[in-house]
């Protein structure tokens, strides 16, 4: 049996989180001392039968109380602020991340790389590059947790969630599902391989040549009949999807909405909830007909025919 005390810290987030954690540990030790040192002294000094001064000291109660109310408030606010700042950087991904899709289902993790590589319960990454995961669930809530990176995000069915991190050390780490999801929740785990950039390139190009995610999406786009309406259709008046991604789309109720992943997802699954201005709500819903994986492929395709630079708010 080994006696690990502390997990490896292998991402920028990990360093940040540990820093806060140590501060909190130090602070807790200080509070423990502050409370227990006097308490133990009192217990010893004033135990019944021992000689001691027991005259009521008439302390200025109000002053004492206010002091020990105010000081903890300020300390708390300090910790909150540090935490909130770190949380903000931890939750908002920077630009130019490597994007990888992760799909959770009872009880495994499927991973799709943009280049078309797929893996199950394994995740290969290059060191030193910020990575953004787009998380989707086929069934219940899961949670994608990599202890060595100190990151975790629930994977909620019916929506996309994201998490990002930047691995800093080459190595092999565990990842887990940390939201209870049924019988084999314990088994829903895997391994992260953080590789050097060249090794990562090798890994990507290993094996047979494969379709990139966008290419698979394009195939689906034809198979599912999307192209029948969206590409030069005579019968149906449907919006072209070229240049759609990240554009501001006018809706028929006069509002605008940014065509991000969520919007495209909703357009495919709940086509009637937001209707593009100038069109009829005739698009059928694909809810129940496509999997989360296919959805992510379609989005990758629409992205690939999309805008390079996101449009500014009007």
């Amino acid at each position: 049996m080994t006696f690990p005390i502390f997990p490896k810290a292998a991402s920028t987030t990990a360093v940040q989180t540990d820093y806060l954690y140590f501060m909190l540990l130090g602070f807790s030790a200080f509070i423990l001392a502050l409370v227990f040192f006097p308490m133990i002294v009192f217990l010893f000094k004033y135990r019944r039968g021992k000689k001691a001064n027991r005259v009521d000291p008439h302390l200025p109660e109000m002053k004492v109380e206010v002091t020990w109310t105010i000081i903890p408030i300020f300390i708390s606010l300090g910790f909150f602020a540090l935490g909130a700042r770190a949380y903000f950087t931890e939750e908002v991904p920077p630009d130019g991340t490597l994007e990888i899709n992760v799909i959770g289902k009872q009880w495994m993790w499927k991973i799709q790389h943009q280049e078309g590589n797929r893996e199950i319960n394994e995740l290969h990454l290059p060191v030193g590059r910020a990575v953004k995961l787009t998380l989707a669930s086929e069934d219940v809530i899961h949670s994608f947790f990599i202890p060595a990176f100190r990151i975790k995000q629930d994977v909620v069915p019916g929506r996309f969630t994201t998490e990002w991190f930047q691995p800093t050390q080459i190595g092999v780490y565990h990842f887990y599902c940390s939201e209870y999801c049924g019988a084999d929740h314990s088994k829903m785990q895997g391994t992260v391989f953080v590789l050097s950039p060249t090794e990562y390139q090798n890994w990507l190009t290993r094996g047979e040549p494969k379709n990139s995610l966008a290419q698979s999406g394009e195939n689906l786009f034809r198979q599912l009949g999307c192209s029948g309406c969206h590409v030069n259709s005579q019968a149906v008046h449907a919006p072209p999807l070229e240049g759609l991604y990240e554009k501001l789309v006018p809706l028929n109720d006069g509002t605008f909405v940014r065509a991000d992943d969520k919007y495209i997802r909703d357009s495919i699954l709940l086509p009637n909830s937001q209707i593009a201005a100038g069109y009829q709500p005739v698009m059928p819903t694909f809810q129940g007909h496509i999997t989360e994986e296919q959805l992510l492929q379609l989005i990758a395709y629409i992205k690939s025919i999309g805008n390079e630079t996101p449009q500014k708010n009007p």
């Binding site: 909190l24 909150f80 935490g83 949380y87």
Partner: peptide, 15 residues
């Protein structure tokens, strides 16, 4: 309090 500190909770939630 550690759990209330956001980044720490991100790490230890569900553990």
């Amino acid at each position: 309090l550690m759990l209330a500190t956001l980044p720490v909770d991100v790490h230890v939630h569900g553990t």
